[in-house]
């Protein structure tokens, strides 16, 4: 190693140092601490603090409420992300095809995205109101028990989430659409491609990479979903809208079981990491061409 290389390496270490320190203090340290907590029975206000090994995890393995929350989290994530992608792409295409008033459409879309999640949830609380809600008034005699029926509540929560976050997907896709050069479409036209062929052979493949990014962001968000169900249903009825993060919140902040709640949080963390890793691999191997 030449002297110059060594100096460069030293400088690099100095430059990267603050970042490593900040990440270590703000991410690694709390992360390791939560992991350590999850191996304990710790309820500080009752002076309970003892090492419990895998006790918390063993209980989770047979805990029906945990598995129900895991199931709810999976259904919520798959349902909301799938709907957001389909509707988001459709909205982006629709706006792209608009001759006039694109800015108005975009602003309206962004309005929902810009709204704080809790405000959006409160809005839907009123829409879903059994007697005075706009939806049930419109349905008249066929009114639906939106937030009180165990088979309807989760779809209702997903719908509210899709309304709020679909614009995120739509805006990303719209930006990508603007970047597709016009001559690609002209060439397709010359080659005699129809509308559907243009969509499936050109537009959608070109959207692929940005969609994968949008799906990554949305999946990670959906796996950690908390606010919308917390406001709308509090996890009910029968726990059917209780996600893993709501369960973790109840354990950590409501019943103050730091050890047990940390175990739930660790599972959520592992889940999010696994999904993020899988997506990033997919992105890097470039199975989806841009």
């Amino acid at each position: 190693m030449t002297g110059r290389e060594a100096a460069a390496r030293r400088r690099a270490l100095v430059c990267v140092g603050p970042t490593v320190l900040a990440l270590g203090a703000l991410t690694v340290y709390p992360g390791v601490w939560v992991l350590w907590l999850s191996f304990q029975r710790r309820i500080p206000i009752f002076d309970v603090s003892r090492f419990a090994g895998f006790e918390n995890y063993a209980f989770l393995a047979v805990d029906s409420r945990f598995w129900s929350a895991a199931h709810t989290t999976a259904v919520f994530t798959l349902g909301s992300v799938a709907l957001e992608v389909v509707l988001g792409v459709a909205a982006a295409l629709a706006i792209h095809a608009q001759q006039r008033g694109r800015k108005v459409s975009l602003s309206l879309l962004l309005l929902a995205w810009a709204m704080p999640a809790v405000v959006g949830a409160k809005l839907f609380e009123w829409l879903y109101h059994p007697a005075a809600g706009l939806i049930n008034v419109a349905l008249g005699r066929h009114a639906i028990n939106w937030l009180g029926d165990p088979s309807v509540a989760l779809p209702a929560v997903i719908l509210a989430d899709v309304w709020r976050t679909m614009p995120f997907v739509a805006i990303l896709c719209y930006a990508r659409l603007l970047a597709i050069p016009a001559d690609v479409y002209e060439a397709a036209q010359v080659d005699g491609a129809g509308r559907i062929a243009t969509l499936t052979r050109i537009t959608l493949p070109l959207l692929g990479r940005i969609l994968l990014l949008a799906v990554l962001f949305r999946t990670l968000d959906a796996l950690r979903a908390f606010d919308i169900m917390f406001v709308l249903t509090g996890g009910g009825p029968a726990g059917t809208t209780e996600t893993l993060t709501v369960y973790a919140y109840r354990a950590l902040f409501q019943t103050l079981q730091l050890g047990f709640g940390s175990a739930v949080s660790v599972v959520v963390f592992a889940l999010v990491m696994a999904v993020a890793w899988a997506y990033l691999r997919l992105l890097r191997t470039g199975t989806v061409a841009a």
Partner: peptide, 30 residues
Amino acid sequence: PYYLLLSATVQPEFSAALVGVKPPERAIAD
């Protein structure tokens, strides 16, 4: 002192019995 723990634990079970997805005996036992 454990009231909140008590309440937070029984809430989903009571709700499950009310909406009819769990027989009341099961809800109480769980």
